[in-house]
Nucleic acid binder design. Sequence first.
DNA 1: TCGGTCATACTGGTCGTACCATTGCATTTC
DNA 2: GAAATGCAATGGTACGACCAGTATGACCGA
Lengths: 251, 251
Amino acid sequence: MRQMFNSLQVEDGILSVRAAQQIQERIRSGELRRGDRLPSERELSEYLGVSRTVVREAIKLLKAMGLVRVRQGVGTFIAEPGPEILEAPIAALMGSGPKVIADLHQVREILEPPIAAMAAQNAAEDHIARLEQAMHDMEANIFHLERYIEADQRFHSILAEATGNSVLQLVAYSIVDLMQRERHLCFASPGATQRGCYHHQRILEAVKARDSQAALAAMQDHLGQIRDDITPNIQSLLSAQEMTETAEDGA
Amino acid sequence: MRQMFNSLQVEDGILSVRAAQQIQERIRSGELRRGDRLPSERELSEYLGVSRTVVREAIKLLKAMGLVRVRQGVGTFIAEPGPEILEAPIAALMGSGPKVIADLHQVREILEPPIAAMAAQNAAEDHIARLEQAMHDMEANIFHLERYIEADQRFHSILAEATGNSVLQLVAYSIVDLMQRERHLCFASPGATQRGCYHHQRILEAVKARDSQAALAAMQDHLGQIRDDITPNIQSLLSAQEMTETAEDGA
DNA sequence: TCGGTCATACTGGTCGTACCATTGCATTTC
DNA sequence: GAAATGCAATGGTACGACCAGTATGACCGA
């Protein structure tokens, strides 16, 4: 039924790449499921008919793709493909600068209001319960920034998950996560967490009431507030950056 | 010359990961620029004080991240980070199924109308010229599907680029590209290319007129047409998939 | 019997060498 | 001068040895 492996006419003769594709194929086909331990490198090398060097490089590729998790002394395991595997490529793609922060926020302003509206329509009871938990955690930690940010991020993740759209969830998670890395920008203003709680509360109530219009509006207000908080900081950073670049040009 | 590398107290003892970070750091800092060739593996291993195995695995990681391009017999080069490096992780993350196609399209419906509106506001003359070129290529190839699809994709990419938002460009490119892979769904209906030309023409004219509202509406209509084209196909695929799953359950 | 210690047999991580395959360039040859 | 040749450098593969964690179970003492 599945000798499709050989049918992959991979022009890339590199054995390690091909080996990685073979393993990947076995994962995708369900032959190996998440959490499973795949054979040891020595076994794989014998099974695939290549040296352990090749197997190791193949696993290295899979690891970079986030498909496996390697634990020394234990084994290599199929990882649950989490949205975080996008972070590295995205981060590598666009070194972080103030301009990128502004761009990120702009994308959020496009994506998240519709997400909130969809969540209000499609959220299951379980999602609402988890949203309330996240809401509670935020309110309990308005002075504990680390925990507050975690709950904040969790809130938005659950919202994206509640849409039932896996792609949306993926993209939204990546954007929010990259955004939160610049937490010192978003939460520099005094009272930012309190204002955040207020807006999140409005979003949550709209979702519970299944009012997608209200959810959309609440999310727009929320993001507008964040924009107001970060804009002055970004402005100063942008001007600082320009000065630096000017200085470099002169050097 | 620069033993700054030693100052990185990376707790992750894995040498290859650390080596990859060191090289990555040198790229990010501008010490190595895109297109540059980095030292040979043998030189790097000596310079970093590790074996060539480690250097190779580090390069493998960078390659998976899309940061370098390796050419046998020539060397390893810093790659221009293109948006396509996101495709592999995204594709790996969500095996393609009819549900994913529908989700992808939904995200497009959220993202692209605002993109068109922003492009109408911010497009430079150069962008408009390239949009006209893409438009022309589409009209010239309404019966040559391969070329038509290429021009179609190019049109949307230029539009995203014209927004001036790098993150938006990145996300939109990934979505559109993944979408186009299911071209047999999007262009199965007769006359799909002609209808596409009509809508693209409307979008282009709105952008040229700097009318963001019209651009937004035109893009909405365009995506709505695509949705009408693909919906029946997806429905049949979904039902077929359910039948397969039912059969597997019985087995 | 219970509980801790330690030997052991895995696992992945690193190393070094040798060799193969491809490429680019200098040299030779016509 | 142009084509063929040879050489040197690069990345790709292989093998074998050993290092470094981890889990397991045998062992021994209380």
